[in-house]
Amino acid sequence: MLRYLIGRLLTFIPTFIGVTIISFSFIRVLPGDPIIVMAGERGMTEERYNELYQQFGFDRPLVVQFWDFFTGVLQGDLGTSYVTKRPVFDEFFALFPATLELSFCAIVIAITLGIPAGVIAAVNRGKFFDRALMSSALIGYSMPIFWWALLLIIIFSGNLGWTPVSGRIDLLYYFPDVTGFMLIDSLLSGQDGAFVSAVRHLILPSIVLATIPLAVIARQTRSAMLEVLGEDYIRTARAKGLTPPRVNGVHALRNAMIPVITVIGLSVGMLLAGAILTETIFSWPGIGKWMVDSIYRRDYPVVQGGLLLVALLVMVVNLIVDLLYGLINPKIRKR
């Protein structure tokens, strides 16, 4: 296990350097002058251009620029936003709790519904439940979530008036950020109705964001279960006279979880991609909206730094998932 852990940590380093290179080189290597793009259609004077050119350090050799960037990254310095003049690092961590809260709710929905759905479908293979669940999963999997969000807004906010359209909480409530998680902060504030308001704001975005991971987890659970159910050790379990819930829920599911864990890990990337659309539509002040806004504003330090941080986030989650994978799969654990 220790060797596995160290080996896995070692692969992290080149990937980290690679991600740094990629986010660094996007602006510098790809065609298109970022400063001119930043200026937009208004254009800019030559003086201003030169000033910016130096400010970004574009006049120095690429290698030097990269070294500065890289050492900056290691010290937690990702540059400052061109628009807000605040450090990219600080902005990221100010907005991160909002995205984390949303993603966490989404993944909880996806896991708690997706795994049972997949197991039920696999056990009832070919029957009504299987068909119904898997058809829904395929629709969810094919869903353009930006449209799905609009549809839910039309129905639940427009026609029924049950849920708010945007934001994290009603403007009526004001309380200080303690944890950055609205659900916790609203409870801590002790204000009447604050928590309910936070929950009502969270419902639609979480459902939208959970849709695709839910479908993917359900489908993966089903196929992993089907594969495992054909294994010899399942026959052994049944030959012991175990009940179907025990055979399926303990002997099969435990083995089927191994590929499902991988998929849950991969769905973190999906969640962040989905968060870009979901947060934009619901005006959710998180990382996704921040990145999109920065791209619109041509705020390149933020785009560069944000890309790096998001990639790092995904990598860290993948690392955690790999370690979990080692825990659940005894073949790796005892190696």
Partner: peptide, 28 residues
Amino acid sequence: TAKSRRKVIGRDMSMIFQEPMSSLNPCF
């Protein structure tokens, strides 16, 4: 019924298989 059959198999009547390596559950 499946239920009463489960009382018999694994208890009064049991079976061992051809591939011992794959017949044991790797996770337990």
